[in-house]
């Protein structure tokens, strides 16, 4: 019997190409089609990178929380792997959102960090919280307990995000005039189109990277299982603890 009949990553290249095309289109639109914003000039263009990054980050964290709930309800470790991978990728996107936000702040207000931009401050807090996800997993040895505790964390952190946004936004005196509502609600049409294309492109990039990580984990497990069947020493086995969920080739 073959070790696994399921092939992972078969459509990975299609996702990658789609992400590359849409993101390139978004950046071309941002550079040549979208108008130069009157107040901030060219530096406002980072909006088309920063805000999609932030939105996709939140979608990833929510997906991680939902997968965690599914894991707690079913005990199916595939949900744990989804939750782990989504949070892992979102954390990287979150860092990207923070860095681009910081660059934007420098360009717009001359400072690398402004405390009265509530969304950015909220993202920093959310980043600091989710950054503890990996250390938490790493410090629990038993894989079943690691998955369960990580799922509890993912649910708590998911519920924390909106609460944190409310608290930080209320604390903000709104000194800076808000040129753009970040929801895109009052954007002119050509900016809106560019913005939506950029969000779709960023989402495709997230999905590609997510699937890439899943594929890597599964193929490593499959290689390990095949080596075991050949009687080879399992040299690739993770030694000691790991923050990642253990994948067994099905």
């Amino acid at each position: 019997m073959p070790t696994s009949t399921k092939l992972y990553g078969t459509r990975l290249s299609a996702w990658a190409i789609a992400a590359a095309i849409v993101l390139t289109a978004a950046f071309v639109l941002a550079a040549f089609y979208a108008p130069i914003e009157a107040d901030q000039g060219f530096s406002q263009k980072i909006f088309y990178v920063h805000v999609p990054l932030a939105i996709v980050t939140l979608i990833g964290f929510v997906f991680g929380g939902v997968s965690a709930v599914q894991y707690l309800r079913s005990g199916d470790t595939r949900h744990d792997l989804r939750s782990y991978t989504a949070i892992h990728q979102s954390l990287i996107f979150c860092l990207g959102a923070l860095i681009t936000g910081s660059i934007w702040a420098k360009a717009a207000w001359g400072q690398w960090w402004v405390w009265d931009e509530p969304t950015l401050v909220s993202f920093l807090i959310v980043f600091l919280l989710y950054a503890t996800y990996q250390p938490l997993r790493f410090s629990i040895e038993d894989p079943e307990r690691q998955a369960r505790y990580a799922a509890v964390f993912a649910v708590v952190a998911g519920a924390f995000i909106p609460l944190n946004f409310i608290a930080v936004r209320l604390a903000d005196p709104l000194i800076h005039p808000r040129v753009l509502s970040k929801s895109g609600g009052n954007l002119p049409g050509d900016m809106k189109l560019t913005f939506y294309v950029a969000i779709i492109g960023m989402l495709l990039l997230f999905i590609t990277l997510y699937k890439y990580e899943m594929t890597a984990k599964h193929s490593r497990a499959q290689v390990r299982a095949l080596k075991r069947r050949l009687g080879a020493l399992d040299q690739d086995a993770p030694r000691g603890r790991s923050a990642a969920p253990s994948v067994t080739a099905s």
């Binding site: 807090i125 503890t132 250390p135 938490l136 410090s139 708590v156 924390f160 608290a167 930080v168």
Partner: peptide
């Protein structure tokens, strides 16, 4: 395993609000 570390790094961000 690292109870003290996990307590601080988990509780502090959660208690910011």
């Amino acid at each position: 395993r690292s109870r003290d570390l996990i307590t601080s790094i988990l509780a502090l961000p959660l208690l910011i609000p």
